[in-house]
Computed example of a mutant assay.
Amino acid sequence: MKKQLYIVLITVFCILLLDQIMKIWVKTTFDYTGENSTMPVFGSWFRLLYIENQGMAFGTTFGASIWAKLGLSIFRIFASGAIAYYFIKQWRKGARTEFLLAIGLVFAGATGNLIDSMFYDFIFDYDPCIGFNHLEGSGIWSDCGIMGKQETRHTGFLMGNVVDMFQFTVEWPSWVPWYDKNGDNQIFPAIWNVADGAISIGVIMIIFRQRKYFPKDKQGLKAQPR
C-alpha cells in the first residue's frame, strides 16, 4: 500500500512542479502582445500562447464582483481538500493504483490553478492596464494613458489570474456543415495549462474506466473501488 501512495504522491508532485515551471517560464519570457506572445510547437496544429484568465479551467468566469472570484478560490480550496480526503479513504480501502492515480491527477490540477490565485499577485508585478487584468463592472478604475481609464480586477490573496499557454490550432475542414468561411473554425479553441490537462485526464479516466474502478459483486451491487 505504501508503494501505491508513493507512486501517486510522486506523480502529483511532478505535475505541480511542471505546471508551475511552465507558468513561470511563460509569464517571465513571453509578452502578452506582439510576436513574442506565441511560439509554434508542432507545426501548425499546436502552439504556446500566453494568456491569463480570471476564472476556472479554459477561461470560465463567474462575474465581476470580488465575491465571485473569492467564492471560486474558496471552492477550489474545499474541492482540493475533499479530493485529498477521498483519496486517503480509497487508499486505505485498497483501491486500484490506476484509480488512485486518476484522483491524484484531479487533485494536482485543482491545486496547481489554486497556487496561481493564491500567490501570483504577490510574486509578480501587477499591471492594471494589461488586457487580461481588465474586468468590466469591478468598480476599480485605473488610468491607462492613451487607453484612458479602465476597470481592472481585484487583487491580492486568492484573487490572482491563472496562467494558460497551450492551444490546439487545428481547424475544421471546409466540407463540414458548420464551417464558417468568415469565422473562427478551430476545433478546440480553448487555451489551457498543465493543471487543466491533468484534471481532464483524471476525469476521463474515471468516466471510461468506472467499471474497473467500481466493479459489481454477484448480487449486482457496486463493490468498493479497486
Score class of each variant (00 low, 15 high):
residue 1 M to E: 09
residue 2 K to F: 13
residue 7 I to R: 08
residue 8 V to M: 07
residue 12 V to S: 05
residue 12 V to I: 15
residue 12 V to C: 03
residue 13 F to R: 15
residue 17 L to F: 11
residue 18 L to H: 07
residue 19 D to I: 01
residue 20 Q to L: 07
residue 21 I to P: 12
residue 24 I to P: 04
residue 24 I to K: 03
residue 25 W to D: 12
residue 26 V to H: 05
residue 27 K to S: 03
residue 30 F to M: 11
residue 31 D to P: 11
residue 32 Y to E: 15
residue 33 T to Y: 06
residue 34 G to L: 04
residue 34 G to D: 01
residue 38 T to H: 04
residue 45 W to G: 14
residue 46 F to G: 13
residue 48 L to E: 08
residue 52 E to K: 04
residue 53 N to I: 02
residue 55 G to K: 10
residue 57 A to S: 09
residue 60 T to H: 14
residue 62 F to N: 07
residue 62 F to R: 06
residue 63 G to A: 06
residue 64 A to Y: 04
residue 65 S to H: 04
residue 66 I to D: 02
residue 68 A to Q: 04
residue 70 L to S: 02
residue 72 L to G: 03
residue 72 L to P: 02
residue 73 S to L: 02
residue 75 F to T: 03
residue 76 R to G: 07
residue 79 A to F: 08
residue 80 S to I: 08
residue 81 G to H: 09
residue 83 I to N: 03
residue 85 Y to H: 01
residue 87 F to H: 03
residue 87 F to Q: 00
residue 95 A to Q: 01
residue 96 R to I: 07
residue 97 T to D: 06
residue 97 T to L: 11
residue 97 T to C: 08
residue 101 L to K: 10
residue 102 A to Y: 00
residue 102 A to M: 01
residue 102 A to S: 02
residue 108 A to T: 03
residue 110 A to C: 10
residue 112 G to F: 03
residue 112 G to L: 03
residue 113 N to V: 01
residue 114 L to A: 07
residue 116 D to K: 01
residue 116 D to I: 06
residue 118 M to I: 10
residue 119 F to V: 08
residue 121 D to Q: 01
residue 121 D to A: 02
residue 121 D to L: 00
residue 121 D to N: 01
residue 123 I to Q: 08
residue 126 Y to D: 08
residue 135 L to G: 05
residue 136 E to I: 13
residue 137 G to A: 11
residue 138 S to L: 02
residue 140 I to D: 00
residue 141 W to P: 05
residue 142 S to G: 08
residue 142 S to I: 05
residue 144 C to G: 05
residue 144 C to V: 07
residue 145 G to H: 09
residue 145 G to W: 09
residue 149 K to I: 11
residue 149 K to V: 10
residue 150 Q to R: 05
residue 150 Q to L: 02
residue 152 T to L: 04
residue 153 R to L: 06
residue 156 G to M: 11
residue 156 G to N: 06
residue 164 D to N: 14
residue 166 F to M: 00
residue 169 T to A: 05
residue 169 T to D: 00
residue 172 W to T: 03
residue 173 P to A: 15
residue 173 P to G: 14
residue 179 Y to V: 15
residue 179 Y to G: 12
residue 180 D to E: 12
residue 180 D to S: 13
residue 181 K to R: 09
residue 182 N to V: 10
residue 183 G to L: 05
residue 185 N to V: 09
residue 189 P to W: 03
residue 190 A to L: 10
residue 192 W to M: 06
residue 196 D to A: 06
residue 197 G to A: 14
residue 198 A to N: 00
residue 200 S to P: 00
residue 207 I to D: 09
residue 207 I to Y: 05
residue 209 R to Y: 09
residue 211 R to V: 15
residue 211 R to Q: 14
residue 214 F to I: 12
residue 216 K to E: 11
residue 217 D to W: 13
residue 218 K to R: 15
residue 218 K to M: 13
residue 218 K to Y: 12
residue 219 Q to M: 15
residue 219 Q to C: 14
residue 219 Q to E: 15
residue 220 G to Y: 09
residue 221 L to W: 14
residue 221 L to K: 13
residue 224 Q to D: 14
residue 225 P to C: 14
